[in-house]
Design a protein around this nucleic acid. Structure first.
Lengths: 198, 198
DNA sequence: TCGTCTTTGGACTAACCGGTCCAATAGATA
DNA sequence: TATCTATTGGACCGGTTAGTCCAAAGACGA
């Protein structure tokens, strides 16, 4: 699909994705034009289509992968472990710290998925897959908790992970509307309390 | 701002808002053009600007009010009461029933707020106010629960209402990405479990 | 019936946007 | 050096969009 890249080409491509990711996070897909991206990255129109032959939609897909990677990395090493209550606590703190330090509020993945559903369903499915992968890691953690006896044996890891992930995404949405980290903290504290009660 | 309306005018205006609300829910603000709305309501461009002199942004504001009203109404009589666990259970069921019966997934208010933050901050603040009103009703319910001794005296109604509301909004977001009611049910069950644990 | 205000129709515009295309340049390889 | 490919610049285009404008039609009270 994409042509073979030299080191310079890869750098340009990365520069485009990174800048575009930031702009899209701030203004949404609809609020960010290719010309905005072109201006901010000091590239030309032909470069955009050289590196992303599929146009804006393909670029958005690349942004999603980039952001998914960044967000998941920020939750490590806790996210992959999540075997003890301490791990969960550490995870909560890592999430709060990460999103609190970002230049813009909200979740780069969740907001993207939300917007794309209505305008680019195929790309939305791709973003949704990233979200489901993320939730899957939480489900693995819940399962570990159950298998070590911290949770009732008849706890439902899938349902619980959905609930935790919903709290996270909802907290991030409210974080964006309220321009404050408070809702995310309250949401995650609530999610952990729910887990402990299970 | 808006001219004086006769009965016919009010009916036309309502028709525009209702149809536009549905289209925006399905395709987002960016995915819905004034021409789409004009076509679906069999009106003319001048009518759109006659009833919404502020243009698309003002129409979006009217849509938000319309949807807020519809969504809050669907949660009655539970939402205004929320004094016993039965009320909360009834509320949960009413929410699930309402969103499960809608022609499109997701929350008409949350998704709107999410999109507007990046493109129309002033209008986003208006939508956020609707959300905060909604959350305030939940907070009142939590307070009632605490005052009747169902909750620990040192429970924090604001934090708990934020957590419940985040679960709700996150559940609705996942409902839209997964095209299934399951995440909303899991999220609300989790939120109620969290409340009981408090 | 007359006059006024509301309602409606639809042509028009200016800006924007995603995408195409062609030509020039830089860099790697042989 | 010669050549092939990757990279870059930027003009250009067709379609779409929000918004404007003017005039006609309808409603209703005096």
């Amino acid at each position: 699909m994409a042509p073979q890249l030299t080191a310079r080409g890869a750098a340009t491509r990365a520069r485009i994705v990174e800048s575009a990711a930031e702009q899209v996070l701030a203004g949404g897909v609809g609020g960010t034009s290719l010309d905005d991206i072109r201006a901010d990255t000091e590239t030309s129109k032909s470069q955009l289509f050289h590196y992303f032959p599929g146009g804006k939609s393909e670029l958005v897909g690349a942004i999603a992968s980039f952001q998914a990677d960044r967000v998941l990395t920020a939750q490590e090493p806790y996210l992959s472990r999540l075997a003890t209550w301490d791990d969960w606590r550490g995870w909560r703190d890592a999430v709060v710290a990460h999103y609190g330090s970002q230049p813009h509020w909200g979740c780069p993945i969740g907001a993207l998925a939300n917007e794309l559903i209505g305008t680019d369903p195929e790309r939305a499915a791709e973003v949704t897959a990233h979200m489901d992968h993320w939730r899957g890691l939480l489900e693995a953690g819940v399962t570990r908790l159950r298998d070590t006896g911290e949770l009732s044996p008849d706890a439902d890891p899938r349902a619980l992970s959905l609930a935790v992930f919903a709290s996270l995404q909802g907290g991030l949405l409210l974080t964006a509307t309220a321009e404050s980290i408070e809702p995310l903290e309250a949401a995650l504290d609530g999610a952990l309390a729910m887990l402990r009660a299970a």
